[in-house]
């Protein structure tokens, strides 16, 4: 065992990179769930975003356009979910699961001609001055733009939900759609927008995997990241900054596990792999033991079907 070979600074930096895809997907899903819609199709939207982003980035040569396309791709797919669940009142759980399967198949189809092709390189942004600060500069200020964007997005969502009227309306819809409807708010429209925001974020997360983290396209490459994002939302009890903590924790364990292995630490890999899930269960138990469902922070109308005739 040689722990000295692990450089904590580089480790922290790579945790930030490894966590970004699940962070993006989780914050999108959180907003969606805040509006009272449970979309289990995160994995499908991520993989669709990954393939859309990759294909467009390869064709245009620009990763930036690729990311825009990924967000669009994710949003369009989530719109399908939105129409099915909001207008046709289908079951959200079943539709979400179907969306995941559909996304995996669709992405494999779109990506057929793009296997083994290299993506255009996304440059790291070296923020002048700041990136030269010893220690912190290396960790915090030498990443690609998407890492900063994801953190800014967390701050933005937090501010939106806490300080704006629109955020309040969104939360109201998620807590009691009947009350919101009685007040004259367009429940279905608001939920559709939230679903599409979730889809766009998941698409960005997927594209981060295919364009920066791996970077190439292969079928099923998100490999369950969408499910982890769903777990993070619960872990975070629907609060933006806790989503950040949750994502870095999950991403951190993944990276740490590999680094410990490379350094020859004799902890069985299985324990490290299961630790984030154990923590989730533990947090859920502690929080739910405390008070009733309110303590968990779950939106009261989460997963419930709304129809204006009620």
């Amino acid at each position: 065992m040689d722990l000295s070979s692990i450089n904590p600074l580089i480790l922290l930096a790579s945790i930030m990179v490894a966590s970004t895809p699940i962070l993006l997907a989780a914050i999108g899903e959180m907003v969606c769930e805040k509006s009272g819609v449970l979309n289990l199709g995160v994995e499908g939207m991520m993989i669709t975003g990954a393939v859309c982003g990759f294909v467009v980035a390869v064709e245009t040569g620009s990763p930036a356009i690729g990311f825009v396309a990924a967000a669009l791709g994710g949003a369009v797919l989530s719109l399908l979910f939105g129409i099915l669940t909001q207008y046709l009142l289908s079951n959200q759980v079943a539709t979400g699961l179907a969306l995941t399967l559909f996304g995996l198949g669709l992405s494999a189809l779109i990506g057929q001609g793009y296997v083994g092709i290299k993506a255009p390189v996304t440059a790291d942004v070296n923020i002048p001055l700041l990136s030269d600060i010893p220690v912190i500069g290396r960790i915090v200020f030498q990443h690609d733009l998407m890492v900063y964007f994801s953190i800014a997005l967390i701050a933005g969502v937090w501010a939106f939900l806490k300080f704006t009227r629109a955020g309040l309306v969104l939360r109201a819809v998620g807590e009691s759609h009947d009350a919101a409807h009685a007040l004259g708010y367009q429940v279905v429209l608001i939920r559709l927008l939230a679903i599409m925001f979730g889809g766009a974020c998941a698409g960005l997360g997927g594209a981060y995997v295919s364009l920066i983290r791996v970077p190439q396209w292969t079928e099923g490459m998100t490999a369950g990241a969408g499910w982890i994002a769903l777990a993070i939302v619960v872990f975070a009890s629907w609060r933006p900054w806790r989503v950040l903590i949750g994502a870095y924790l999950f991403g951190g364990v993944t990276v740490l596990q590999l680094n410990l292995q490379a350094a020859g630490v004799a902890i069985p890999v299985e324990y490290l792999s299961m630790s984030p899930y154990l923590i989730t269960i533990l947090v859920l138990v502690i929080m739910s033991a405390n008070r009733s469902r309110a303590a968990l922070g779950a939106p009261a109308a989460l997963g419930r079907v709304f129809h204006a005739s009620h």
């Binding site: 070979s5 983290r213 791996v214 490999a223 590999l258 292995q261 490379a262 350094a263």
Partner: peptide, 27 residues
């Protein structure tokens, strides 16, 4: 030699992470 067991035959994201971890440790 530093060895990482990925417990998969095919998982590009995991393989990329494993390679990155090895490279960061000086390989």
């Amino acid at each position: 030699f530093s060895i990482i067991w990925a417990y998969t035959w095919f998982d590009p994201a995991k393989e990329a992470d494993a390679a990155t971890a090895l490279i960061e440790q000086g390989a």
